[in-house]
Amino acid sequence: MWLRERSPFVIASALLGVLILLFLILPVADSIFTSAGGLYAALMSEGVRRSITTSFYAAFITTLIALLLGVPLAFILSRYEFPGKRLIDSVIDIPILIPHNAAGIALLMLLGPRSPIGSLFSGVGISFTDTLFGVVAAMLFVSSPFMIRSAEEAFKSIDPSLEKVARSLGASSFQTFAHILLPLSLRGILTGCLLTWARAISEFGAVVILAYNPKTAPVYLYDVFISEGLKGSAPINGLLIILALAVFVGLKFLAAKPTKPVY
C-alpha cells in the first residue's frame, strides 16, 4: 500500500525513520566516495588481497560447517518437544548476546594450546591459535545461530501433515526430510547461509583474539588503521564495504529467485 495516510502519527514515524536510514547510509556512502581515488591501489596491494581471500575462504568454510551441523539441529528443534529444549534455545542465543571479544577469549581458553581440548586437537595437527582453523572457529561461534534460526523458521512454516502423508506413503524419515522438508525450506536455508556468511565475514572481535593471523580483512583493516591512521585505512575500508555489499546483494538476488514456484 502506498503511504497515503496524512495523520500526524504516520508523518512523524516516517520522519523518524528517515533519520535512522540516513544514519545507516551516510557513513557507508561517505566511505565509498572519499576512498574512490585509492580503491585501485588498495586492490593491488598484496596484503589487502591476501586478507580478503582469507576472509572469503574462511567465511565460506564457516557457512558450510554451519549448514552441515546447524540444519539438523534446526530440524530437531522445529519438530520435536523434549525436556531442556528451552535451555537449548537460550544457548543458541548466547553468541548474539555476549561481546564478541569475550567470545574470542572464551574460545581461546577452550581451544588454546594449553587447554585439554586444544592439546587433543594439536595431537592430530590442528591448532586454533593463529591458524585458519582459529579464524573459522571464531566465525562459526558468532554466526551459526543465524543458520539455525533461519532453518528452524523455514521448517516450522511447513505443515507437519505433509510429513505424515509422506511417511504413510512409505517414505522413511530421511526420505521425508530429503524429498519434502528440504525442498520446501530451501529458500529459508539459503537465507540462513547468506546471513551466516555475512555475519562471519564481518566478524572482528572474536577472530582478532583467537587468530590474529592469518589476517582476515577486518583484522588487516584494523592493523592499517593503527599504523597509518584514517588516511591509510580509508581506501581499504571503502573496498571492503563495496565488496561485502556486492556479494551480499548478489547472493540475496539469487536466493530470492526460486526455480519453481513454491506454495
Partner: peptide, 20 residues
C-alpha cells in the same frame, strides 16, 4: 511399526498435497 511400514493410506483433513 513406523508409519512407512504399515501400508496405510492417509488423507488428512486439508488434503495437504506436496506443494512443490
Amino acid at each position: 511399526e513406523p508409519p512407512e511400514k504399515r501400508r496405510v493410506g492417509y488423507v488428512p483433513q486439508s488434503y495437504t498435497l506436496f506443494p512443490h
